[in-house]
Amino acid sequence: MLASLEGAVTAATLALTAMGLSLVFGVMRVVNVAHGEFYMLGAVIAWFVSTTLGTHPAIGFVGALIVAPVLVGLLAAAADRLILARINYDPERTIVATIGLLYILQQSTLMTFGPDARPVEPPFNSRIALPWWRQGENGLEMFYPWGLATTSYKLFIIVAAVAILIGLWVLLTRTRIGLVMRATQADREMATAFGIPVERVYAMVFGLGAGLAALGAVLIVPVQQAHYLMGADPLLLSFIVVIIGGLGSLPGTIIAALLIGMSDGIISVFFSPTLAKILATLVVAMVLVFRPQGLLGKASA
């Protein structure tokens, strides 16, 4: 049970990060290898904000929640205008360019933020222990065993991620911006013909995608730490989630995030952890091999 709760925390941040990647992929049809670094930047900025404000952790946290995604989003949009737009979103060149971007962001962070993992204090954090019952001398007795506990902050992550995802869904389906994005996704030429400023939409999508990654990182950083190499794992996992979920399919992305987040914890109950990772990786790969369009993708992906 605890494993599934942990899985849900992983899934929640993963869903946000992967959603960013999925949006970029869905609308712009490019693979952003630097996505993990935007995630990392989100965590690092959260650390800077909370240490500069330095008062109550909650203020720093709220500050980071606003500042980090906005800054990262702006940076990403600038990168889009300066680099990606100029290479015309050619898929291969975009991969190289974003690998270059990855190096630049990573090294700049190493030089400014340093090589250490730095913790950010959660805005609130209390250990919630759950009781359990066992057959004792006086019949059934209640006790608090090891481990049957979680923290309030972890529950908050799940709630917050769900709220943000709902917000995103509203943005995409109920607003003009969302409509414009979906139109661009469906047919770029047609969108241009209808006077949609496709270039600006692209920059916005790229920024929004990076911002979502940063947001996921701000949420998770009080649990983990900010570190300049932290972007690699979320990048790999997001990739997997996006593909499994079906390219550009947002509900698919969420389901896949849940699946990946949960499967890891559950398989590891049965096997040695490293073997579990190997199996989980292969299972996911096999899903792709035998259902290349992803779980919810349309047949012709």
Binding site: I87, A97, G100, L101, Y103, I104, L105, Q107, S108
Partner: peptide
């Protein structure tokens, strides 16, 4: 040097 490598990669793609 990775910064330089990154910049060179970006320039090459451009």
């Amino acid at each position: 040097y990775m910064l330089i490598a990154g910049v060179v990669l970006v320039l090459l793609t451009l």
